[in-house]
Amino acid sequence: MSSFNRRTLLLMPLALAACGFEPVYAPGGSGSALNGKVEVSAPNTVESFLLVQNLERQLGRSATSGNAYKLDVKVSTNTRRTSITTANETNRYTIDGSATYALKSNATGQIIASGSVSDFVGYSAAGSTVSTLADERDATERLMVILSDQIVNRLYATPGLPA
């Protein structure tokens, strides 16, 4: 016998509304509050360029004037050998990445949201030098996509963003 009850399904929207849940992209949601209104800090490394590129893709590229928010991000990566043969040859690498962020209001200078995110990706080093470099570049791009997704998700979950 299943414990599924249709009444539970019907009451779910009421429960979500009672806890303050609102869709991100609904009118007045945090998605519309941030879209095109966030100036992301200028990149200074390849990794930060990729992170800023992904953040601007998700948040919308801001206009040069009229930005409501400034997003300062700092990214750091560390590459580790994770699969080493008995002959001391590396077959696989892992890139650990972390990013700190702070969303500030341009009107008040107050920090609205801040935090840090981290994750990792791996790539193979078993092929030629060219393929290993291509795999490393691809892994770095994937890591920056993951970190930017995490930052945007946390920004969208920030309570009290004015629309």
Rank of each mutant, 00 (worst) to 15 (best):
L133E: 11
T8D: 13
N106R: 07
I146C: 06
D96C: 02
V40C: 04
S114G: 10
Q58L: 12
S2K: 07
R81N: 12
S118G: 15
T86S: 12
M1G: 14
G160C: 05
R137H: 08
Q110T: 12
A102C: 07
R61G: 07
N91I: 14
S83W: 06
D138R: 12
S148R: 02
A163E: 09
T158A: 08
Q110L: 04
M12V: 15
P23W: 10
D135E: 09
T77G: 01
V152A: 09
R80T: 14
A157M: 12
I112D: 05
L155P: 10
M12A: 15
G36H: 00
P162S: 10
P43T: 00
I95M: 03
S124D: 00
R57I: 06
N88R: 09
V73Q: 05
A113F: 02
E136R: 04
N88T: 06
N54K: 06
S114C: 05
L59R: 04
L71T: 01
L161N: 11
D138V: 10
S116A: 14
A125M: 05
G60K: 00
D138A: 12
P27H: 05
V38L: 01
K104W: 01
R92Y: 02
A17K: 12
V40K: 00
I146N: 08
R154T: 09
S2D: 14
G31E: 13
G115W: 06
T90P: 02
Y25W: 15
V24N: 12
L10W: 15
T90H: 01
S30K: 04
D119Y: 10
E47H: 07
G66A: 01
S3N: 13
L10M: 13
S105R: 06
T85C: 05
